[in-house]
Structure formats: structure tokens, C-alpha cells
Design a protein around this nucleic acid. Structure first.
Lengths: 335, 335
DNA sequence: ATCTATCTTTGAAACGATTCACGATGAACG
DNA sequence: CGTTCATCGTGAATCGTTTCAAAGATAGAT
């Protein structure tokens, strides 16, 4: 059915080797031979079989990227940064989203290994580092995204979430809030845990500040709305006067619950701050204060590190890149 | 370097054929042989080489999906629907975004063809149907997403954008608006053109209603903001009293310009309606009226159609599935 | 003891592009 | 005219998995 080099070679009256050379090193072939082969290719509608190419080459020209949630604009921005850097080297990004599910995460890792990817970018959900070690021991470079390896054994590109979390809460405290709620979860997600840790530290700095944790089962708008409704339905004296959400999606959900489905005022009754500073943050019901992360740059840098590690082979030295988060103040915390 | 079936076979003292059988048809192999082979696989850290598999099989186990813009939540929802349906058959989605660039669109098509994908899902930017015909003639099923082929020669899953556009404008007119502006572009994007067409028809239904077109160069929040600023900066008597945006991202941008960066009221001074009803629509500064499309279902159905076409081979009959858009009224059009 | 029927296992032949050591051709030069 | 060198082109071997006809093994039946 499919046309192969062999048939192209026959049609152009040359050998298969020459067809391959036309495809890969045209300068090594006489001009009119090139023309003849190209004509045959066009005529027959020949399309290179990538599987055969890869089989011979030993590895593919793609890089696997496993993210926690594609619906989070933060991650699509990371993906685009990665894609841009990969394209510079003629590579492709294979995107998988784990939805914070360890099984899916592992399934994607397996898939990527079978595909013989050039490397894997991952924001690992669980602390399944052994699985990553194993991948690396098989020659697959691994770079952690938005997360650092506890023992620095992996290269990583991250933003200090503890600092970011502290920034958020410190800002709330400085604007006079005292009873703070942290909305986020599950705590198995490292980013969530770190932001909470930062929040705790910042809260502890000022006497009289309390930090309550409202655990959610995920980090979507829907889960944020549920958490917001729970808070809204409390007696006023039990409500916090400020909420720090583990990401902007949650914050948007909380906003919906407090304002649209309830009648609380933000920041009048409750101040609100999110995390990531996605595009929608500044266009939400009440423009959202947030902690900004350089998403595109994170993706770009991660691929850069990966390619370097792939080039250097086994004598790589894991490298940790860390960006700093940045506080963006908008109305939701009462500018 | 990499471990192959051959080495596994040697380690387990069986033939390569048996190893393959253990991998693919374990029930055909004696239990203790299975155990022995599995042990060898584990011991050696064998990972199947997908390229070799595909080469033999003739095609890959993935489906290509080319979308206009990954940053648009509408498309990520479509992608998830597609992924879910594909997973049911053990398949994978390869996601490419064309960014409304014909070259990128073509590059992804080429890539997918080289990968011998099972089929291609595409919301084609240009009317480059010949390219798609060519792909199909090579045996690659093609299903159009969010768009219909003019001559019904391709299967497609779409929502009637003309009806949706008319719905939006009719709603604006019914709430008393007369000077309507359509914000969107470029008109080479079929969805944009169709929604505008619908808007035109609806405007023509009522005497005294004018429809002005504010063309944008893309459909992002940023471009929406630019268009919004242009409108905001006009003399009040030249401003429209309602704006219909080709999608919600644009509408969010327009909102930013009118309210946050300007001091116009929505819907007081200008009513605003978007398209897609993405999650953020109901949480924007002013909750956004919109035209809802069943994004997840579109993706799911498209893969379903594709797999059917792939099964039936050449005696497929192109099938057009069309969903109906739905008006969602919120505050931005003054409930 | 022989024959069938049923299970298991085998091993060589694909799949299609790339590589590379080697010829072949012809031009340039002494 | 003979030698050297560069340029082009060749085709068999290779990558790793799957397939499938055929061989081998085992047990039950006669």
C-alpha cells in the first residue's frame, strides 16, 4: 500500500541508498539525480516512514512532557515554552497530562520510554523518584519541571513555592488580615504542600495571625467553588478575613462562590489571592492578586537543560535552575 | 545499549517468538514459561521498542489532532474529549497547535503522516482541502473538527456557527441594543467568518440595527484588549451599545479594556457577549454571556467517527455530525 | 505400540529507512 | 599515457518486533 524508498528508487532508476542521500544529504548527490528522485517522490506520493527511521536511529526526535493538568493555563504556557525551545532543534513535544493520577503518570512514562524519546520533562505528582531513576539509568534524561528533587539528583527548573507562599500570606497580613484560610489540595501535590509551608511560616511571623487549611481534592475551578461555598455558608464569625488559594483556578472558583453565588464582598468581607497569575486573573469578577511565575520560561529552560544533558551523555551534572516568584497586587486584596 | 527481545529470549532460554507471545498473547504460552520470560524482562529492564513495533504493524497507535490555539480552553476541552475516546481503544492523541498559521498546520500534517497515525483530526485554518484529500488518498482518515467541508466530502463534527452568531446578535437586539460591533478576526478563520455571517443575518432582521466589524488579527485576550481599547477611546457617540466577540478570550480582553483600563460600564454603557462559554466566562469581571458549545463531546465524537472510518476502510461514507449552540445569558448583557 | 489431537515453541522472513565500505567514472596533472 | 583524487552511486547489512508455517512434545484413545 504505502510507497517505500525502494519503489522511489526503481522509479528514478537509482539505488535506495541514493534516495536516502537525496533525503538527508542532497549536497552529496548530483543535481540532476536529485531532481529525478524528487520528481519520483512527488509522482508516487512518497512519505517517509518515521518508525523505520527511528528504528535505525535508535531514538525519536521528540521529548515527553507530563503535566499535572492541561486545563491549567500555567501548564499550557510551560508547554509552549518547551515546544518553542524544542522546535529550535527540530524536535517535537509529546504532551501527556497525568491529572494528578499516579497511574496515568506512570502510563505516560512507560509510553515515552517505549517511544524512545530524547528525554522526559515531568512535574512529578508523587515522590516516585525510583521510577525516574530507572528511566534515567536506561539512558533517558529526566528534567523536573516546577519541582526540585529532594537530593538534587535530577536537573530541575522550578520556582521557589515556599517563598511564593510566604509572599502571598505576608501580603495579606500587611494589608491587615489576621484570620487566613489556605485553600488547596491534595497535599500530595508538592507545589500545594510547599505553598502551604510558606504560608505557615509567614503566618507565624506575626502574633495573632491564624492559618486555617481548607483541603480540596484537586485544583480546578470546580473544586475551588466547592471550597468557597463551604466558607460562604459558615456563620460570619467563623469565616476567615482572607483566603490564599494554591492556584488561580481555585481562586476563580472561590470567587464564583463568594460573589456570584453568595453575597460576600471581595475584598470587603474577604481578601483573596491566587497563584500563577494566569491571563484570566486580571479579568476575573474582581481582578485577582496573585503570585506570578514565568511559565513560558520554565518550559523553555527545561528543554534547554534536557538537550544539554542528552548531549553530554552520562557525565552530566544535574543542574537546578530556580526562578523567583513575584507578587502581583490587584483589587482582590484591596489595593 | 538498549535491551532487545533477543537478549530477553537468551536470558530466559526461549526463542524470540516466545518472548513476543508472552508480550502479546500470554494465554498462548505455558504459565511457567511466561513467568520465566517476565522475570528476564524485569531483570534486564527490557522496554519494548515502539518504533520497531510500528514498523511491523504498518501504522502507529496514535491519532493526530491539530487545533487552532491550545491556549483557548475550548480546544483543550476538545482535546480531552478526543483523548478520552482514544484511550478507550488504547490509542494516544498527538496534539499540535497551528496557531492559525498555515505553514505550521501543514508541518503538523506532514509530521503526522510520517508517523503513520491512524487518522487526523483537524480544524483546518485555511481551505487547504487538497492537502487533506491527498492525506486521505494515502489512507489516512481525516475528520474535520469544529468545521464542515463545503462539499461534505469529509466527515466532520461541528456546531453551527452561523446559528450561534445569529443567536448572539438576536439576543442583543432583543435586549434593546441597536448599534452592534462584531469583534473578531482574521476572517480567514472559518469559525470567525461564520459567526459574523450569522450576526449579519440576525442584524438584518430588525430595521434600525447596525452591525460594525472590528477586525482583529487573532483571537487572544491580548488582541481583544487592543480592540476594546480602540472602542473605548472613541467619542461616546461613535461607540457601539453592544459588542459580540468571536470567542470568550476576545471578550475577556475587551472587558479588561472597557472596565479595568477604562471606565465604561458593562452592560450599562455597552453590552457584551462572547462565544464558547469557557469556564472563566462566568467568573470574569462581569459574568459573561456566551454561546455554549459542547467542547468535550465534539472531541469525543470526532475520534469516534475517525475510528469508525479507519475500520470501514475505503468504503466509508463521510458523516457530518452537527451540534447545536446554546445561549447562556449572564450579567454582561444585562440579565 | 501406534495414531490423533492438542499444546507449545521455534526461527526465519518481513517491515522501511539509513549507513558505509567499495566500486565506477572522469578530470587533472606530471 | 599513467597516476591520483574527487565525485557519485551502489547494495547489503542493520535496527527490534511481530507473524506464521511448521516442528516438537505430551497425553489420551485404540
Amino acid at each position: 500500500m504505502a510507497v517505500s524508498v525502494r519503489e522511489v528508487a526503481a522509479a528514478a532508476s537509482v539505488s535506495v541508498g541514493t534516495v536516502s542521500n537525496v533525503l538527508n544529504r542532497p549536497e552529496k548527490v548530483a543535481p540532476d539525480t536529485v531532481a529525478r528522485v524528487l520528481a519520483a517522490i512527488d509522482e508516487l506520493g512518497f512519505v517517509r516512514n518515521d518508525a523505520a527511521r527511528q528504528l535505525r536511529a535508535g531514538r525519536s526526535r521528540s521529548i515527553g512532557l507530563v503535566v499535572l493538568d492541561v486545563r491549567n493555563p500555567f501548564f499550557t504556557d510551560v508547554a509552549r515554552g518547551a515546544e518553542d525551545r524544542a522546535a529550535e532543534d527540530g524536535m517535537t513535544i509529546l504532551l501527556g497530562n497525568s491529572d494528578d493520577n499516579p497511574d496515568r503518570e506512570r502510563a505516560y512514562l512507560d509510553l515515552f520510554e517505549e517511544q524512545r524519546v530524547h528525554g522526559v520533562l515531568i512535574s512529578p505528582r508523587s515522590d516516585d523518584l525510583p521510577r525516574l531513576e530507572r528511566a534515567r539509568s536506561r539512558g533517558v534524561p529526566v528534567v523536573l519541571v516546577d519541582r526540585e528533587a529532594p537530593d538534587r539528583s535530577f536537573s530541575s527548573v522550578a520556582v521557589d513555592d515556599v517563598v511564593g507562599g510566604a509572599m502571598a500570606v505576608r501580603h495579606l497580613v500587611e494589608s491587615g488580615r489576621r484570620r487566613i484560610a489556605f485553600v488547596g489540595g491534595p497535599s500530595s501535590i508538592r507545589q500545594v504542600a510547599d505553598r502551604l509551608e510558606g504560608a505557615r511560616r509567614a503566618a507565624a511571623e506575626t502574633p495573632g495571625v491564624t492559618l486555617e487549611v481548607v483541603e480540596t481534592s484537586g485544583t480546578t475551578v470546580l473544586e475551588g467553588r466547592a471550597a468557597g461555598e463551604a466558607i460562604r455558608d459558615r456563620a460570619p464569625e467563623h469565616r476567615p478575613d482572607a483566603i490564599f488559594c494554591a492556584n488561580d483556578l481555585l481562586a476563580v472558583g472561590v470567587l464564583q462562590a463568594l460573589i456570584m453565588l453568595g453575597d460576600l464582598r471581595v475584598p470587603g468581607d474577604i481578601a483573596l489571592i491566587g497563584y500563577d497569575d494566569i491571563d484570566f486573573a486580571q479579568a476575573s469578577v474582581v481582578p485577582l492578586s496573585s503570585i506570578r511565575q514565568p511559565a513560558w520560561l520554565i518550559g523553555y529552560t527545561a528543554v534547554d537543560l534536557l538537550l544539554r544533558e542528552a548531549r553530554d551523555g552520562s557525565d552530566f551534572a544535574p543542574e537546578q535552575v530556580q526562578f523567583q516568584p513575584e507578587l502581583v497586587v490587584r483589587e482582590s486584596t484591596g489595593r
